[in-house]
Write a protein that binds this DNA or RNA. Structure first.
Length: 589
DNA sequence: GCCGTTTTCGGCCCGACTGTTTTCAGTCG
């Protein structure tokens, strides 16, 4: 069936409803119900349309936070591709108000007020009335709030939306180093979505302990990276950075570091879930610790020093930050079934990298030396086999030359095992760019989509399954083809493609290249649930790109364990696995 | 709007900072 609305679109619809209801001063809990549902849906590994086709309304209702009303709204969207309720709501609110509400300091109440009293319909209107001094005359507003709004508009203009983790993490680590260098702090740590390794982050959260919080705040606000101070208090300060991001610093007492770190790491959903459990157990959880009793009437302190203590107070084992998305980790913790997450040091080989035989920047010997220096036991050189005119690489007529190059690398770095591989294009019809007679001469075949991203989900599903069914394919490279913040990638039935991969023992790659991170977290999780094997590849085009750091982060967010990723095996075991008879008759040359 | 071995109705997480206030609402995370 043609998919009428994807999870992303349904999630966006609920987010929009939540915002409109907020502007209308609706019951905040009703607003939150929509927000929560939107978040839940965005992180579902399966498409709602598939869930509905299989299990109907009952299956929708089985999703946490989806009740009779939201269930029937989802039903309407997957059946008709639209939602009448949202259409009606939209008519009542000027589209531009949502951007107004995004401005720093402009919440739903203030937005509603400027709309009703000053007919502000968008950010441009807001700027106009602010500059005309009309804002300051509103009840409860003053000169300063007007100035702040203008600053907020400027900030919005100069800052993008969310920033990729891969770009923001190094900057945050620098800020942490600088704070440590002041010698004013006991501990300094990154918190927030960045600590959870979310693929994009909204701002940088840093937590520190100190006995001189005022001095720490002074030092923080005076850092060279800081453009403007938004707020400054003894426990919390916020600044805008020149790099176009916001950074928040909290300073707490040493003995509540664990509670604070837990609190500020989030996610919001995870924390709310835990606090709900706390209420039932008669305890209160805040950034200052876990207490017996209610928020109004606190009793004895139960935990605060470490995150482990916080979880233990709820009779739970420690939950890794990457899992704290309220995607079932709390139930798993309760049941004792949390995954033992993969770590960077578990990776023993790199199964996807390029040399200057195709579009890489370094020759095979250089890449091999760099890989060995990184401590890898084995690599697969996988230069492109692509029909795209601009891409050099493996063709029907130069296999001997390619193997000769790889032979040279093997001689130059004898301690590193080097597989002769290829990254072959999956053509629009699912056939591969290179014929089987070439592929069967290679040790490791990664098949990837590099063109024609705009097929229907049905066509793309068939395309990938056909590639999976090629007897010489070992892995599907960067399966969704997305580029973070740039390209959404191809759309297909994850269920059907993963099922085919499992049946044929073909691996799904976790591409660790910073712009890709593909499979993404929720797809990793689904692959694991379905028993699909995975590989990890750096997709390096230069020696310094032989780095799996961000790929491992993404995998950890997807509940991936060492045993789920084939190249965590030692060379000996990997070779055995690769040579073993399999449903598709693999071979290792 | 969701949810229930404390409730099918009445809850729903907790606290800091700011500005414009004379005691607190709004915003943010």
């Amino acid at each position: 069936m043609m998919r009428l609305m994807t999870n992303a679109e349904i999630s966006a619809a609920f987010t929009m409803i939540g915002k409109i209801l907020e502007l209308q001063n609706e019951n905040p809990f009703r607003v939150r119900a929509y927000e929560r549902a939107a978040l839940t849906i965005a992180s579902l590994p399966r498409e709602l349309s598939d869930i509905y086709d299989e299990g109907g309304m009952k299956a929708l209702r089985a999703i946490g936070g989806i009740g009779p009303d939201l269930g029937s709204k989802i039903e309407e969207m997957v059946k008709t591709g639209e939602l009448k309720y949202l259409k009606e709501l939209r008519k009542k609110i000027p589209e531009g108000l949502f951007a107004v509400m995004q401005i720093e300091g402009m919440g739903p109440k203030k937005t509603k007020m400027v709309w009703e009293k000053l007919k502000v319909k968008n950010v441009a209107d807001l700027e106009k009335v602010a500059k005309a001094g009309k804002l300051a005359k509103l009840p409860k507003w003053g000169e300063l709030s007007e100035k702040k709004v203008l600053q907020g508009i400027e900030t919005r203009k100069s800052m993008g939306d969310r920033v990729p983790l891969t770009a923001a993490l190094p900057l945050a680590e620098l800020l942490v180093e600088k704070l440590k260098a002041t010698k004013l702090c006991g501990q300094v740590a990154i918190a927030g979505s960045m600590r959870r390794r979310a693929e994009t982050i909204g701002d940088i959260d840093i937590l520190a302990t100190s006995t001189k919080p005022a001095k720490v705040m002074e030092a923080f606000c005076a850092l060279g990276e800081v453009k403007r101070v938004l707020s400054k208090g003894p426990t919390k300060s916020s600044v805008n950075l020149h790099a176009g991001m916001q950074a928040d610093l909290r300073v707490v007492d040493e003995n509540v570091f664990g509670a604070a770190l837990h609190y500020f790491t989030g996610s919001k959903g995870h924390n709310v879930h835990l606090r709900g459990m706390g209420v039932k157990a008669g305890i209160t959880i805040s950034e200052y610790g876990v207490y017996k009793g209610t928020a109004e009437k606190k009793g004895k302190l139960l935990a605060s020093k470490t995150e482990e203590d916080v979880y233990a107070s709820l009779k739970l084992p420690y939950i890794a930050p990457e899992l704290r998305e309220d995607r079932g980790e709390i139930d798993a913790a309760r049941a004792g079934t949390l995954p033992k997450l993969i770590e960077e040091r578990d990776i023993k080989g790199d199964l996807h990298l390029h040399t200057d035989f195709s579009d890489g920047g370094a020759d095979a010997v250089t890449m091999a030396k760099a890989a060995y220096a990184k401590g890898l036991e084995y690599i697969a050189i996988t230069d492109h086999g692509s029909g795209m005119g601009m891409v050099r690489g493996l063709k029907e007529n130069n296999l001997a030359q390619y193997l000769k190059m790889i032979g040279k690398a093997r001689k130059a770095v004898p301690s590193l095992k080097i597989l002769a591989g290829v990254e072959v294009d999956i053509q629009p019809d699912g056939s591969l760019y290179l014929p089987d007679k070439i592929l069967k001469e290679l040790d490791w075949v990664v098949a990837s989509v590099h063109s024609q991203f705009k097929q229907s989900p049905e066509e793309t599903t068939a395309r990938l399954i056909r590639a999976i069914e090629n007897p010489f394919v070992h892995a599907i490279g960067h399966p969704t083809g997305r580029l973070i913040g740039q390209r959404v990638g191809i759309e297909f039935s994850v269920e059907q493609v993963f099922a085919a991969a499992k049946k044929r023992s073909v691996a799904m790659e976790i591409n660790a290249s910073p712009p890709r991170l593909d499979l993404r977290d929720i797809h990793c999780k689904r692959a694991k649930e379905m028993g699909v094997m995975m590989t990890m590849g750096s997709d390096a085009h230069a020696p310094e790109e032989l780095d799996m750091r961000f790929g491992v982060m993404q995998a950890r967010r997807g509940w991936v364990e060492k045993g789920d990723v084939m190249n965590t095996k030692s060379w000996k075991d990997f070779e055995k696995w690769l040579r073993a008879p399999s449903p598709i008759g693999r071979r290792l040359g």
